[in-house]
């Protein structure tokens, strides 16, 4: 077989693959571009369906009404606080759980492991969890968004897998020098695990930032709505949308519902979009640790 023909087939194959991958990638970018353009176009352009992937008659009217309303800003601030609190408590608790369980010779390890793992496969469900949070008096407090999901068993397994990959000799050396388990965790294990800890902290942060269910279940006071719940109300309910519309009308803006919705979406999307490219490699690393098998 001629070598030239074969490489031609191969090249054709690669071109085809490149085209398909490009198309899939575009389906991830173009929708966001469309929303972005809608939020930055004039009411007239939006109304006459002129907007595609670039703003038409550039204007910031929609954002002006989003910011004068202030509800989205307040919700974002509340969500930031909840996320910081959640990540710090979760990391603390997850380390406390994963480190002892990473010792192969831990007495009682097997029953403890089963005890923890069982919760991944069987759960009380939405209603009993709600009743518990209610009985504990956590409804309408930030704790309702922090405590029930403090330890993600999945993240804990990732962490434990990583901890047990640290050579035992390093720990033994410190142990012989008279260090106790807490010293070893603090001075030997954690400094070696910085990248992995960053990854898990990011997993926790993203899950808190994006979650909406507990915000719907546990928070009923509008002043404490998390961002995703607020956004959901604007997108899915006429009432949430009307509130923003009338705010805009009060300051003399003519705005289309579509503009407001788009602006609210972009507002919530932007923080993720800005940090994501820089943090992506940490996330991928987390999946890799998991692939080694927990």
């Amino acid at each position: 077989m001629a070598k030239g023909r074969q490489s031609l087939v191969d090249r054709g194959f690669e071109v085809l693959v490149t085209i398909i991958v490009t198309i899939i990638a575009l389906t991830c970018i173009l929708p966001i571009l469309n929303i972005f353009s809608l939020s930055l176009s004039s009411a007239r352009a939006v109304n006459s369906n002129e907007v595609t992937f670039l703003p038409v008659d550039f204007t910031l009217d929609a954002y002006e009404s989003v910011f004068t309303n202030g509800a989205l800003l307040r919700s974002m601030w509340y969500t930031i606080k909840a996320t910081l609190l959640y990540v710090s408590i979760s990391m603390f608790m997850t380390i406390l759980c994963a480190y002892p369980l990473s010792h192969r010779d831990l007495v009682g390890r097997k029953p403890l492991w089963v005890f923890v793992l069982f919760t991944m496969y069987f759960a009380g469900g939405m209603i009993p969890s709600y009743l518990l949070v209610n009985d504990l008096g956590l409804i309408n407090t930030m704790w309702s968004l922090v405590l029930p999901g403090m330890v993600s068993t999945y993240n804990m397994i990732l962490m434990r897998t990583f901890f047990s990959s640290i050579p035992a000799e390093m720990k033994e050396a410190a142990y012989i020098d008279g260090a106790n388990d807490a010293d070893i965790l603090w001075r030997v294990v954690l400094p070696l695990s910085k990248a992995m800890l960053a990854t898990i902290a990011l997993f926790y942060a993203v899950s808190r930032w994006n979650a909406v269910t507990d915000g719907m279940l546990y928070i009923s006071e509008p002043s404490k709505y998390i961002l995703q719940v607020r956004l959901k109300n604007i997108i899915l309910s006429a009432a949430g949308l009307n509130e923003l519309m009338s705010e805009g009308a009060n300051v003399g803006l003519t705005i289309q519902p579509l503009q407001i919705r788009s602006a609210a979406l972009v507002f919530s999307l932007l923080p993720v979009l800005v940090v994501y490219p820089f943090l992506q490699k940490y996330f991928v690393r987390g999946v890799m640790i998991g692939a080694v098998k927990g």
Binding site: L96, P128, L132, G149, M156, N180, L185
Partner: peptide, 26 residues
């Protein structure tokens, strides 16, 4: 290694309160 068990106390309490009690709630 008693310290390891001290460390486990908080997470285990968490699992009891927020996972096993709701299971009882069934």
């Amino acid at each position: 290694h008693w310290l390891l068990y001290v460390m486990l106390a908080l997470p285990i309490t968490y699992y009891i309160v927020f996972h096993y009690i709701p299971m009882g709630g069934i």
